[in-house]
Amino acid sequence: MNIKHYLDSTYLKTAAQANLSEQENTEVVKKCIQEAIDYDFKLIMIRPDQVVLAKKMIEAANSKVTIGTVIDFPFGNGTLEEKLAEAKQAIENGVDDLDYVLDYVAFKRGEIETIKEQVLQGTKLGLAHHKIVKWIIEVAALDNHQIVQLSALIKNVVIANFSEKEYDKVFVKSSTGFYKTPEGVPNGATVSTVKLMLENSCPLAVKAAGGVRTYEEAVEMIQLGVKRIGTSAAKAISTGEISNSNY
């Protein structure tokens, strides 16, 4: 097992969130992209406005690292039209993976048809352009029953509308890493939430994002059955170091 090829190395902070200037934050992004190239991670996950930069650096290095970005991040409460417009721009800019934040608040309000349409149209757009599509359900905002329901909903929409050969291009993803939880409560992937996702999203793949910071934790997630791990501790995971990352 080459653990590096499971890792979506992630940096999603804005300059303000990182308490940096725009130029300083761009330098951090460049460092993360270069690290992904140097360590041959599966993917570099960055904000939409940084996709062009990543594409340029990866092509210049003749690297196989793929590029992912987040859509309607971090709350997922934009309109369907806004989600699709942002995704279309990312596709034009050369992105490989589209990680949409599903409107989990609307789901909790019972707006099931709205959620189904988001999944249908967002997935259709991505697959039409040969992209990987991931749906972030924000497990920390949901109870176990809701995790089961939402994972199954995404699966059922995909099965009803797309061919079996496309199933492996659609993921259910645990978290944004930006959801605010009470002190000490995990806001990312946990073993229990990932098990629920795996059981109810199959045959779709699962991405465990947030909270995976060590080699041992990553191996545990892979052994459970996840196909991707979203983490800002990719280097530490791949080298066995200790990370102080909070995502």
Rank of each mutant, 00 (worst) to 15 (best):
A189H: 03
F171Q: 11
A128G: 11
D143L: 12
L127I: 06
M197A: 06
D168S: 13
S192H: 15
N200K: 00
V170F: 09
V105G: 11
S175N: 03
Y179A: 12
N200G: 05
K195R: 11
G110Y: 07
I132E: 08
V212Y: 07
G177Y: 07
K207W: 06
V226S: 00
L127Y: 02
N93Y: 13
L142V: 08
G211M: 11
D97I: 15
N161Q: 05
A205I: 05
K134I: 02
I154E: 01
C202Y: 14
P182Y: 01
A233L: 09
E166A: 02
I112E: 09
F171L: 15
T123K: 08
V95T: 14
E111Q: 14
V194Q: 05
V212W: 10
A208N: 03
I154L: 01
I147L: 01
H145W: 01
Y179V: 10
Y100K: 01
P182C: 02
V172I: 13
V95G: 08
S232F: 13
L102V: 14
T114I: 04
A189L: 05
I159D: 08
R228G: 05
D97S: 12
P186V: 03
A140L: 05
L102D: 09
L204Y: 07
S151I: 05
V191W: 09
K173G: 03
L125G: 10
N93M: 12
T181Q: 10
L142G: 04
V212G: 00
A106W: 00
E138Q: 14
V226R: 04
I229Y: 07
K131C: 06
E217H: 10
D96N: 14
